[in-house]
Structure formats: structure tokens, C-alpha cells
Simulated assay, not measured.
Amino acid sequence: MRLKYSIIISFICAIMFSQNKEFEPGKEWKDTDGVHINAHGGGILFVDGTYYWYGEHKTEGKGGNTSLVGFSCYSSKDLYNWKNEGIVLKAEENPNSEITKGCIMERPKVIFNEKTKKYLMWFHLELKNQGYNAAKAAVAISDNPKGPFKFYKSYRPNKGVWPMNFKEENKTSSPNEDKLKSWSSEWLTAVNDGMLVRRDFKKGQMSRDMTVYVDENQKAYLIHSSEDNLTLHISELTDDYLDFTEKWARMAPAGHNEAPAIFKKEGIYYMITSGCTGWDPNEARSFSSKSIFGPWKSLGNPCIGEDAGLTFHSQSTYILPIFGKKDQFIFMADRWKPENPIDGSYIWLPITITNEKPVLKWAEKWNLNAFTENQ
């Protein structure tokens, strides 16, 4: 009898926690087990009618931003209700592993390779006890969107390769540039002219906050904060999405951008980023270009309304194309809680385009009916 009632109660709870019919940005978002979703700094992949949300599994306390567990995965048919699929890339017990427990693993983004039929998870990796000095891009592989993913390799991208259209005169260091005062006009000019590219040329460029984008021609790109977070780099991946082609470009040199998120509409690429203020929110930036490699045009803050200057107290992580709704996108962002990372919440908002500029308006509640029904 006790077992019977337990089954009934479990069934009722499952029903109760599967009835989300709208988004409530910033509020606690429970999965189908009734637990707050733990998928921070995440990205989403759509496969055969199902959305998969990958993110950082945070833990409690100030140490919760180090990777003690790994990357989580949730699945959904409707984007409102998410089932916990477990940890799909685990932080390892082996102290010699690059992804050993206590390292930093951030911003997982999964893409599918049509040629190899493999799922590739790219992420930002920092080695244990090294703070943010390693600044690596890493990739893991799986045969299934639910994982498990197997760690493959980490990189400092574009080792020994100059960016496209880098001026010949900028390949040589300027006299005394290493003695310039940080943030002086002379120092910013030197950064713009590639001082930090030259510094990291032999060992490879830095890669911190990042996202991955697959274009219509199946070419894939890693977009990552580099040069001490002062400049974004756009790096083309090889056909198997496991390495770099040595074709890359700088974006907004010395602009101090991180948290890149990208989408494309009617032949125009749009990107939303944040400034660099640690865990504290700041004013978002937006850009557009007719080529993935630029030139990129600055469009200013895409947010409108109260708290627009703080991106509604959040930071961008991904822009999600909605399946079945042509050219409709959701802006995904995180409200970080550094004092207790597991409590971090999520900001999802619809993106509109006005005069070829992305616009984000705050909504306490909304659903997919906010989008037009273009198929």
C-alpha cells in the first residue's frame, strides 16, 4: 500500500512540475523533478524534435564556480519544461587530467558535424590552481546528444598564425611597448595594433568566454575573448570541428568584450556581448556584419527599459534559433550569484530586429506566441 501511494505521489509531482507554459526571466526555473535547473553559461542544440540545454553544473558556496562536477544536460520538447539528463562531461578524479576536479570549465556549446555524425562540445578551460592564466579552448566528443562526452583536446588557438588582414608592420614589436602604462591612450593604441597578438603568437592566442557558430554552409567558428579579454577572436574550425584552420580575424580590438552570442538573419550576422566587470552585470553591446570575419559595426546597447544599463542584471551566453519559426531567436543570459553559484538564474527574452539592430525588451512573463508564426 505504501508503495502504491508513493507511485501516485510521484506521478502527481511529475504532472505538477511539467506544466510550465511561459518563461519568467530571473525567477527560479524548476526541471521536471522540481529542482532548479543547473545549466549555467549554457547553450542549446536542437536534434530530431528535442532541445538539449548544456551548461555548467554549479555547486554551493564560494568555490562553486570551480568545476567539481562537470557539465549538465537537460532535454525539452517545448522549451518550457526540462528533464535532467545528468552530467554529460564529468570533471575527472585523475589529478593529471586537464579537466580534473577543481579546474574551471565554462560556457559549453555543442554542435553536430554532418560529415562525421559526431557531437562536439567546445568550452572554456582553465587548469586547476592556475586561476585564469591558461585561457584555453577545449573540445569533447560524443556519438549522442545526451552524452557521455569524452574529453579530446585543449588549445591555445592559432599558434604561430597571424590574423587575416593583419598589417605587415604590426607583426614587429614597437620600441618599449612593454613599458606602456595600462589603459593609457598609447597602451590602447598598441593593443589595437596587435601588441598582445604578438605577445602570444608563439604559444597561441588566449581563449576565455566563448561560443560556437555553425553557418549555413556547415562551416563552424569559435568566437572567443582573447588578448586579456580586450579583443574578440573569430576562428574557423576544421571540417571535423576538432581543430583550427588557421583562418581567423580580430573583432573590436581593445574593445574589452566578453560573453559573445551570435545569430544570423537575412544575411546579416549579429552579435551581442558584455563588457568585462567580473561577475557583476554591465551594459550589453551589439554588433552587425555582412561577413563572419567582419568588418563589424558597433550598434550600441540592444536593451530597452528599466535596468537596460545592466542587461537586466544578467550576462549573455547564447542566442537560440526557434525551430519552426523562421528567423526568430531567444536571447539567453545568466544572472550570476558568485556568493552561491548554484542559485544563479536565467534571463530568456525574445529578440526583435528594428532598423537592422537587435532589440531586447524586458518582460516579467512571456511565451512563444510573442513570435510571429512565420514557418
Rank of each mutant, 00 (worst) to 15 (best):
G43W: 07
P350Y: 09
E126P: 08
E24V: 14
K146P: 00
I141R: 06
N355D: 15
L45E: 03
K83V: 13
L242M: 14
R199H: 09
I322S: 08
A363T: 00
K109E: 02
A190R: 12
T32A: 05
Y221P: 05
N158P: 01
K167N: 14
I37M: 12
D228V: 09
C13H: 04
E126V: 10
I44H: 06
G267H: 13
I234K: 03
R107T: 02
L125M: 06
A252Q: 08
V110R: 11
K326G: 02
I99Q: 03
T59M: 07
Y346I: 12
Y5L: 13
D33L: 12
S291H: 14
N367D: 15
L180D: 09
L368Y: 05
K167I: 07
V69H: 06
L45V: 12
F123D: 01
I104E: 08
K83A: 10
H224P: 01
T354F: 03
I223N: 02
W183M: 13
S316T: 15
E266V: 00
I353R: 03
K117N: 11
E28A: 12
P321S: 12
G194N: 11
D280W: 09
K83I: 10
L188H: 06
F293C: 05
I234G: 02
T277A: 14
E114P: 03
V35F: 12
K4L: 11
E339M: 07
C303M: 13
Q218W: 05
D31L: 06
S72V: 03
K83H: 14
N84M: 07
P253W: 04
N301L: 07
K77D: 01
T231E: 06
M206P: 00
N65A: 04
I87S: 01
Y51C: 14
T59W: 05
A190M: 03
I347H: 08
K153Y: 00
L310Y: 13
I9E: 15
Y155K: 02
D243F: 04
T59F: 06
E92V: 05
F263N: 00
Y132K: 01
R208V: 02
Y155G: 02
L89A: 07
G102W: 11
L237F: 01
W296K: 09
K159W: 07
